[in-house]
Structures are given as C-alpha cells and as structure tokens.
Amino acid sequence: MSLFLQRTFDSLANGSAYAALAVAISMVFRSTGVLNLAQGQLAMFSTYIALVFATGPSPYLKFSSNTDVLGAAWPIWAAILGAIVISMVIGAFTERVIIRPISADPVAAIGATLGLYLLLGAFVRKQWGGRTMFLGSPFPQTVDDRWDIGGARLWHDTVGITLTMIGVLGLLAVLQRRTKVGLAFRAVTSNRTASLMVGIRVSRVLMLGWALAAGIGALAGGLIAGEINVRPDMMGRLLIFGLAAATLGGLKSPVLAFVGGYLFAFLETMLGGYVSFIDSQVTLVWALLVLIIVLFVRPSGLLPRSEAWQQR
C-alpha cells in the first residue's frame, strides 16, 4: 500500500507538467482551431530564458558575447516570472505575426507551428548548445524537505509544484468565469462571428489566449526543470503526454485536459512501477497505446458525445 501511495505521489509533479501543457494546447485549439505543436518548444525556450535570468553573468549563458545585459543572478521565482512574461509576449507575437495571417487554413497553420517548433529548437541549440543544464526548483529540495505519510514520502517540492499549478489553473478558471475578459474569451470560442457583431475585439482576445497559453507552458517548464533538468529536447516527451491528455478532453475542454494530465502521469508511473517488462522509457509507448484504445472506444475522449461530433 505504501508503495502504491509513493508511486501516486511521484506521479503528481509530472502530472502537473502534463496538465499545464494539455490546458495550454486545449486553450489554443478551442479558441483558434489550431493545434499548436510548438507549445512544448515554447515552454523549453522559456525555461532557457529562466535559466539565463537565474544564472546571471555566466560565460556560456549570455545572450551576447559582448555585453552583460542581465546583471546579477535572480532568485528562481523571479527568473521563472520573468520567463513567463517574456513567453507571454512571444505567444502574443506568434499569434499576431505567424498565425493570424494564415489561420483560415488549418494545414498552413499547423505547418507554421511546426516551423516555430524547428526554429526554437535550432535557436536554442545554436545559442546554448545541446548539453544538460540545471535550473533548480523554486521549492525546498533537500533530503529532509518531505512529509512521511503512510510509509510514503511526499516531497515539499512535489506539493509546491502541484499546488502552484492547481492555483494558477484555478485563477485561470476564475478569469474565464468571473471577468469581462473571460466572458469575451468564452464568447469568441463559442461563436466568433456573433462575438464580432456584438463588438468584441476578437483578434485581441485570441492574442490574449495565445499569451496565456504560452505563459502556462512557461510556468510548467520552469517548475518541472528542477525535476528533469534543462535540455533542448526536454519537452518532447512532455508534449506527447500533454497532447494525449488534451485528447482526453476532446482538445476543447481545459478542465478535462487538466484531469487527463494527472491521469496519464498516474498511468505512466503505475505501468512503469508494476508491469515488469515496461521500463520508464517504454511507458510513453503504452500511453500511446492507451490513447489509441481510448480513441477507438470513445472517440470523444471524456467529452459528451454530442459535443465531440459537433467538432467534425
């Protein structure tokens, strides 16, 4: 029982990252109908920005070899917040400059997000190389920073990451339900033409949606970097789980995508832990298999069938 509990606790940190990426993907898909394949790379890029802020003047992390534009090292929280702000600007810029002119054509839009995927990967490799770097966690991470519950260890770091993600996504839900901006966002996702007719600035709302999605991705990257370290390919695996989790929500429901994120992380940990022939690498394959089976049995994911068929 304690082993089961331990594995459940272990799945929480990864689940937070998957859930955050899944929510970001769902938000963008819901509002613009574009599957943003660059979501993971945007998160990876923002993690490098956080790393630059957190490291300060360092010979291998400078933006420019001539000037030191960043000054002293920032605390990790401040570095992650700085990266979130920059990511939100990049997200808004991406929507305005890259996606909006071609948003009418889904093939072109997916192609453009894939172009962005390659561009960010190539830029990071060129700027910072392919080696693994360490950002650290904004939460206490020593051996003693834990609670012992039922024979299992629950790390403060894990609780911090999980509560932060739940808090941020709760704030997002409040933003959507209780504010005028949220109302406008819901109107645009529901019916864009009608929103235009009642005077909502649709383009601005969409830009905000992309910015928020990029910000959530940046937060996920910054928080999970303490667990998985920083590498150009750090988000590949997370993106796949994020996409799978978003699929459980029919790509349109951030709440179900959020649940899906934790569900996949739980499944991943349990399969890797209890099935002898599945190691940590192969869990990705089993998650893919589960995804295919779910799509076979219930194509709408966890969404009600009627809503899913409306998407076709």
Binding site: A109, G115, A122, K126
Partner: peptide, 28 residues
Amino acid sequence: YGWVGLFKSEGFIYAALLLATAYLTRGK
C-alpha cells in the same frame, strides 16, 4: 552541439521552408 550559423543550420533551413510554405502558398 548542432549547426553553425543562422542560415547554415539545417533546423533553420527547414523552419524557414515551413514558414515560407505556410505564408506564400497557404500550405499548398
């Protein structure tokens, strides 16, 4: 650790190709 130069890199070349295709031909 990857490719040298902004326009000499394979990653940049493919990214530019994808973006140019998306913009100039609408993905066609």
